[in-house]
């Protein structure tokens, strides 16, 4: 497999070679990989790449998927404009 042509994160265009190299270097949590590569920070918020990267980590480290995948999502779900937040506040006066 040509690892640099195998895309893991479509939103941020990250290939599997990048991910595998990081795991080999000891970067073995979704959170760290996210901060280094921006994987999971695009419009889909890691729904596409998360399980794929988690499986890579599990295969290389033997860590159970359950521990790798602990979700740390925070509101809001998806992008919101400040204007949209402000419009909502006006409604309550």
């Amino acid at each position: 497999m040509n690892d640099d042509k195998t895309i893991v994160c479509r939103c941020e265009d990250i290939d599997i070679e990048t991910i595998r190299k990081l795991i080999d270097q000891g970067v073995t949590s979704l959170e760290e990989i996210k901060r280094i590569t921006r994987c999971g920070m695009g419009p889909c918020q890691g729904k596409t790449c998360g399980p794929v990267i988690a499986r890579e980590i599990a295969m290389k480290t033997g860590q159970p998927m359950e521990e790798i995948l602990s979700p740390r999502s925070r509101p809001p779900f998806g992008g919101v404009l400040f204007q949209e937040v402000l419009e909502g506040i006006d409604d309550e006066e």
Partner: peptide
Amino acid sequence: LKSGKMIKIKPKAIVVATGAFEKFLPFENN
């Protein structure tokens, strides 16, 4: 988010039924 406004809702209970997301597959030129 509705019609450009962030609305707030205070219900007594919530049912979340957001469904699922398709899995992706790593292969060359995907």
